[in-house]
């Protein structure tokens, strides 16, 4: 990677992690600004790592996630009330475990003896990913499409029930 791509990587990583902290620590709709920062930062990181198609897919998916969460927050503001209550022992233990997970992952990243190598042979483009998704891993793509269909159908049905009420 040249210096420009490296600098871009670290800038986008900072944006992504700042957005993630905003999602974790802010409340209400301000949290969604953090999610937008994560969407832009993560898509930029993917693109910087030569994964343009994954960058486009992630950007679209995360923007849709932010709009769905915004719609939920505006439809049911009372759902936010639970965040104003004091955290119980399970939440505190869960937060500590998440910190422990980060320490383990950071240790593995530094100490793991990964085989390095960037293969220049073979094609690496959108059509290659499409062939894998629709050919070799068609079952995973079908399962994903099924999960997506269930989610969207549930959202549509619930939205219709709320409007009828």
């Amino acid at each position: 990677m040249d210096a420009l791509h490296s600098a871009l990587f670290y800038a986008l990583a900072a944006l992504t992690l700042a957005g993630a902290l905003a999602v974790a620590l802010l409340a209400g709709e301000r949290r969604l600004l953090g999610l937008l920062a994560v969407a832009v930062g993560l898509a930029g990181l993917y693109a910087d790592l030569s994964a343009g198609f994954a960058a486009g897919a992630a950007l679209l998916a995360y923007l849709a996630c932010a709009s769905l969460l915004l719609r939920t927050l505006r439809a049911w503001p009372a759902l936010e009330a639970a965040d104003r209550e004091a955290r119980g022992v399970p939440q505190q233990v869960g937060g500590l475990l998440a910190g422990a997970v980060f320490l383990v992952l950071a240790y593995v990243a530094y100490r793991g003896d990964f085989a390095a190598g960037f293969q220049t042979s073979g094609e690496i483009n959108t059509s290659a990913i499409g062939r894998l998704l629709l050919g070799r891993d068609a079952l995973a793509a079908e399962a994903l499409a099924g999960a997506f269909l269930v989610g969207v159908t549930a959202a549509a049905v619930t939205s219709r029930v709320r409007r009828v009420r």
Partner: peptide, 23 residues
């Protein structure tokens, strides 16, 4: 891997620590 791990752990923290469902 470090950035990915930090993002994963922040997500795990958010899921575990937030009491509200949208959070």
């Amino acid at each position: 891997l470090f950035v990915g791990g930090a993002l994963f752990a922040t997500g795990a923290f958010t899921v575990a620590y937030r009491r509200s469902f949208p959070g």
